[in-house]
């Protein structure tokens, strides 16, 4: 991405020639930041796999209950949700599924942004948008699960 003068071994100044040399994005140089010495990426990688295994059970179970068993999607109504959330078991199921799916999805999108966004500012703002949306959705969902009032009119 740098616009600096491009030099090859023999010192040829390619910037002086008519064709702009197309550099690939984010090339590694001696100035590339050195190791940060955290285990963040390791834990992120592990989390994707562990949460994936749990999501198989949680999401497929969820879909089965909502869409297939006992009348299919047409039975899903306010009363149905109220009935399920009366039980702490389904509250916990939905809460864990919400958090795992959101963090799994957000970390997956972070990977995709790291793969595809080239400019540092683009990367930064896309991630800020992602994190904001994630925090908002997780907090709103958690709030609803805990404060759901079946007698609301």
């Amino acid at each position: 991405m740098s616009t600096e003068v491009f030099k090859v071994e023999d010192g040829t100044d390619y910037a002086a020639h008519p064709a702009p040399v197309i550099e690939p994005p984010r090339a590694r140089t001696a100035r590339t930041p050195k190791a940060t010495r955290t285990n963040f990426e390791l834990y992120g990688w592990l989390f994707m796999r562990v949460s994936g295994v749990l999501l198989v059970v949680l999401v497929l179970g969820h879909l089965l209950i909502q869409l297939v068993l006992e009348g299919g999607v047409s039975k899903v109504s306010f009363a149905f949700v109220a009935g399920r959330w009366a039980s702490p078991f389904w509250q916990a199921w939905d809460l864990i599924m919400l958090w795992l799916a959101m963090l799994h999805g957000a970390n997956g999108l972070r990977t995709i942004i790291n793969d595809y966004a080239e400019r540092d500012t683009t990367r930064f703002w896309l991630k800020m948008l992602l994190y904001t949306a994630t925090v908002f959705t997780v907090l709103l969902g958690t709030l609803v699960i805990f404060t759901f009032d079946p007698n609301i009119r």
């Binding site: 090859v8 040399v21 197309i22 690939p24 590694r28 140089t29 001696a30 590339t32 050195k34």
Partner: peptide
């Protein structure tokens, strides 16, 4: 692919060897 093409089939290998050195 992924390295600067200098001429025809010749690419700039510096970023590749930088990662190797690192």
């Amino acid at each position: 692919k992924g390295l600067t093409v200098l001429k025809d089939l010749v690419v700039d290998m510096d970023p590749f060897f930088q990662a190797y050195r690192d």
